[in-house]
Design a protein around this nucleic acid. Structure first.
Lengths: 209, 209
DNA sequence: TGTTGTGAATCTCTTCACAGCT
DNA sequence: AGCTGTGAAGAGATTCACAACA
């Protein structure tokens, strides 16, 4: 079983490898990738070991092969699609941010309760009424939910997603969601992050992490 | 020394305690707070122990006192101010999100390179030219930077902040920043988070974390 | 009885260190 | 000589389990 932390770093390595490949660099050593990622060489080697890819003691890793191996590991062969719930300031920013970024992972529908938004296309994404959730999500074969509704509506949004059979949720609302154990939630708690920065900025010389 | 993870949870506990206090609940047990926070009772007790606050074996913790203790621990007595670099979609969403949220922690200046934005006030925050960074930041006594510029400009933005003497940075750009060891960076890597969700949504029954 | 506070045990993640390879 | 792959050690975080207490 592969850990949450390793998955996160693999995602980062792949992104860094794309730049390396674009610069026409063929091979990369664990310590080079570690330098780019802010990790240690041993960490990089172990992460790569975990997905079963092997380098060469002389030339390090083949950048292109490694990126492909990570892709095979992280991506679903048919791709995966996400729905965004809550087309406010943050929701729209995310639609812009993720638009066309990864072919195997796209936001394919947005939902809101405000009728003025129904039918609009925002950064290439069609906006539906929340009432259509149960029909649009299976129809578009969506397997991931992104919650950007206000805090007081987040649990309801989550419950709706879970009821339809969504197993993965990215939650931007600053409240812990109650979910059954077969659903994975990743929280992005910006308030918490900012308060951490404030704390460690004070305690000065290199606080935690 | 208190850990990064503990600081994060304390921030969360405080937010949850506000709701509890608003509901006129006087006392709270570690297992109740744990339930709200999605943690264990032992975890909550240890975190609270770390900041030196004590409960009562009969009544648990005094909600109001505990919230105050966490505040004394997390907040700077004079408050702290942040600057946001990069007034794009995400930057504007953050200005809206954090506007007036916490009195002791506010975004007091925004910076961009686009002259059309200079002088505008966005969600209550004045927008300056990036060239004015070195004058506005000391003037407003800002100690925290928030980076929402495009990936290829993030390191430059970071370097500018560090040069002016900023010790804490919240980084939304999807690149690891190179910083001296006396600066604390908290990364919010939305791409990584979404890819994690995609992965664990597949491997189904409660992947990692 | 049911809670807190906490030493000790456990679990998880990271780093060390080196054999084996090219 | 300098790298990878990896067992083993180490560090860090969480949970257990129970004495002390109201």
């Amino acid at each position: 079983m592969i850990s949450n932390k390793t998955i996160g770093r693999l995602s980062l390595y792949r992104r860094l490898l794309k730049d390396v490949i674009n610069d026409n660099q063929r091979n990369i050593y664990s310590h080079e990738l570690a330098g780019l990622a802010g990790a240690t060489a041993a960490q990089v080697r172990r992460d790569i070991m975990n997905i079963g890819y092997s380098g060469n003691p002389n030339r390090g890793y083949d950048a292109r092969e490694l990126a492909t191996s990570i892709g095979n590991f992280l991506d679903h062969p048919d791709g995966q699609r996400a729905a965004l719930l809550g087309v406010g300031n943050l929701g729209r920013a995310l639609l812009a941010f993720f638009s066309g970024r990864r072919p195997k992972l796209s936001i394919d529908a947005a939902f809101d309760i405000d009728p003025k938004k129904f039918g609009r296309v925002i950064h290439g994404c069609h906006c539906y009424s929340t009432e259509d959730l149960a029909t649009v999500i299976p129809e578009k074969n969506i397997s991931i939910g992104i919650i950007t509704v206000p805090a007081n509506e987040a649990q309801k949004a989550c419950d709706n997603l879970v009821r339809i059979g969504i197993h993965g949720i990215l939650n931007f609302a600053p409240v812990p969601l109650k979910i059954p154990s077969n659903v994975y939630v990743e929280d992005i708690d910006m308030t918490m992050s900012l308060e951490k920065v404030a704390y460690f900025a004070r305690t000065a010389t290199s606080g935690g992490k």
